[in-house]
Computed example of a mutant assay.
Amino acid sequence: MGANTTKTPKMPTVQLGATKTVDGQAPGSGQAFAFQLCDGQGEVLQEKQNDGGTVPFDKLVYSEDGLAADGSDSTMRYAAGEKAGDSPSYAYDDTVYDVAVTLHRETAPHGRTTVTATPAITKAGPRSPRWRSTTSRAPRRSLSPRGGSAPRAAPSPSACWPTGWTPARR
C-alpha cells in the first residue's frame, strides 16, 4: 500500500539592503535615523534605525500562502522610506522606494518544486535604497508622484506613504 504525499517546496527569503549618508558620509555615533518598510496596504512591517551607514531590515520570509493558486508568478509589494525626525539640524530624505518581490514557482519533470524570490527596487530605475540627509535646513526638492519636482511636503505619519504617493503599478 502506498500513501499519497505532498512535497512542500522550500520557501525563499529576501534580505533588503540600504544605506544612509549625512553630508556624503556614513552617520557617526549619535546620528540615529528611523526607516520603515511597509506592505502594499501601507501597514508598517518593520521600523529600523541605521547602524552607521547601513539600514538593517530583517529578512522577508515567504510562505506557500503567498503563491498564486494557479501556479503563476506572485508579486508582493512594499515601500521603504526614511521617517522624518524632528531635529532642526537635518534635512531628512523623503525618497520612497517601491519594492516588488516576485515569487516564481517551477516544478521539474521529476516532481521537485522550487520557489525563487526576485526583488526589484525602483526609484527612477533599479537600485538599492540609499537615503541622504544634509545638516542644512535649506528647502529640498524631490520627485513628485507624477515625476516632476515639488517642494518637500510636511512629514507624514508613515515614511512609506507620503501624502499623494502611491506605489508604481506593474
Rank of each mutant, 00 (worst) to 15 (best):
Q41A: 14
A80S: 14
D65T: 08
L67P: 12
A68P: 00
S63C: 09
Y78K: 09
G71E: 03
G53T: 08
D58G: 11
A84T: 11
E64V: 14
G28C: 02
D51L: 08
T118K: 12
V22P: 08
Q49Y: 03
T75H: 08
G30T: 04
V55H: 11
Q31L: 00
S74V: 07
S29T: 13
D51S: 15
Q41C: 01
Y62S: 06
C38Y: 12
T54K: 14
P27V: 04
A108Q: 14
F33A: 00
T102K: 11
T75K: 06
E82F: 00
G28W: 06
Q36F: 03
M76G: 04
P109S: 14
E82C: 05
T102E: 08
G24P: 04
R105A: 15
Y92D: 10
V115D: 08
P126F: 10
A117T: 15
G66N: 15
E106Y: 04
M76L: 15
D93S: 01
G111Y: 11
V55L: 06
T54F: 02
V96H: 02
P119M: 10
S72Y: 05
D94L: 00
D73L: 06
Q41G: 11
K83H: 04
V61N: 12
Q36M: 04
P56N: 02
A34P: 03
K59I: 04
A32S: 15
G66E: 15
V22T: 13
T107V: 15
I121P: 05
R112H: 12
N50Y: 02
T114P: 05
F33E: 07
P88R: 10
T116D: 10
C38G: 06
G40Y: 02
V99C: 00
V61L: 01
A124L: 13
L45E: 03
A32H: 13
I121Q: 07
V101T: 04
S63D: 12
T114H: 04
S63M: 10
T54L: 01
Y78E: 11
